[in-house]
Design a protein around this nucleic acid. Structure first.
Lengths: 231, 231
DNA sequence: TTCAGGACGAGAGCACTGCTCTTTATTGGG
DNA sequence: CCCAATAAAGAGCAGTGCTCTCGTCCTGAA
């Protein structure tokens, strides 16, 4: 191993340690209270030293966001691949529960990703691929079911203006070997919207006084959305 | 008017001015950057003077949250009451669009209310009634439609654990003159979840690369959710 | 009408934040 | 083996939420 990589390896380790400390702090206090100085303190460094690794607090947060997306994606992919391929509904449900389980296990990271966006903060391009991982899995399930011909179709007329919008998604599906109808695309987007809405409602406390049995309700809800999609 | 109320009137005016300034700042920078000192500066006061009116920054935020809920509720109630009472679907759609319009007109206030909750921050009891206003309107529409017998029923079996949870909501409906079945309650909660999910996805930027025609998509989406509820 | 007590604003100050700049120490690679 | 690149430290700036004290002013009761 050449010397340059020795240095960069140490550097990468430090970067990981900093993210680790930041994540610990995040879990306790939330993103708003994440303090670079506190992270530095925990690592026995002086605050200015941390700036060698992350040019700003926002950059640290961006790194945590990317990690969060990837952690979520990993959990989802893992859960989905554990289900028999032809059990489309089972795969779908596995994804739904995997997202929620991850969200509940690290609520602050979920909030970081899906909560109020930081003002003036534009997500850099390198957050996009990790952010797509869950969507890709969902699309693949639907595409597989379409190809197998087991998806219940129930076409609703889609307004022209909306239909024009869906072209890129249509190609996204066809890249995965399925020719899908616009109606199905709409239903898929709505399903993903619903997954997000249900988990956020629960985690952000907007279901107090409405639902107590979160586990049961979520499962039932997702089952119905799967039916809505046609699975 | 006695003297005490002179004082309290001036005080109330100051409180309003402070909230007004805070709201202006909120609209520009977002909740995270709301600074009590900046508010004080804008009003030509010293920061410590503001503490005579709001004991802490969080209390200011709470006041803004309550105001936001009420503004949203007002917009919704107004829009809903403009539709002919027997047009249940029209009333429902009016509510959906009113929520979204309000959210888009003051995105930071929407984020304050529906975004990542502030850690360690428990919503005080006086935020609950304002927060309920939209829900109440939605429930009333469904209840009216049930009473009129125009609601399409399509009962799904509800798991026992979930059903047990819904008792308080059932009485909430019956207080509004409708005997509803558990299935309908579930569908209503899901619809409200979906409204929230769709608006948050749009406002928080999670639909970039998916939907561009937000207006058309939202309308279509809400139309389908109305059908899902049975309207 | 007087006057005590409460409300109010100002200012200083504390402990904290993100971030920059300069100086010093270290250490890896030619 | 020595030098340049890298890292770490420390001081410092401007900002934050919040507290405490100290005069001032005004109100409601005596």
């Amino acid at each position: 191993m050449n010397a340059a990589s020795v240095r960069s390896r140490v550097r990468a380790e430090l970067v990981d340690e900093i993210k680790e400390a930041a994540r610990r702090q995040l879990a306790v206090e939330g993103a708003a209270a994440l303090s670079l100085r506190a992270v530095a303190r925990e690592m026995g460094m002086v605050s200015s030293a941390v700036y060698r690794y992350f040019p700003s607090r926002d950059d640290l947060l961006t790194a945590l966001i990317v990690d969060a997306y990837n952690a979520m994606g990993e959990r989802v992919e893992e859960a989905e691949s554990a289900v028999r391929g032809s059990d489309y509904r089972g795969r779908w449900m596995a994804v739904c529960h995997a997202v929620r389980d991850w969200a509940r296990s690290t609520p602050h990271e979920y909030g970081l990703v899906f909560g109020t966006p930081v003002p003036k903060y534009a997500a850099p391009a390198d957050t996009i691929p990790p952010a797509m991982r869950v969507t890709v899995v969902l699309v693949q399930i639907v595409a597989d079911a379409v190809r197998a011909g087991v998806l219940v179709l129930d076409r609703e007329p889609i307004p022209k203006a909306v239909r024009a919008d869906l072209a890129p998604i249509r190609t996204f599906f066809s890249e995965r070997g399925a020719t899908v109808d616009d109606d199905l695309i709409v239903r898929s987007i709505m399903a993903w919207t619903h997954i997000y809405g249900a988990i956020s409602f629960e985690l952000f406390g907007h279901r107090v006084g409405t639902v107590t049995e979160h586990d049961g309700f979520f499962d039932h809800e997702m089952r119905r959305m799967a039916a809505f999609v046609g699975l």
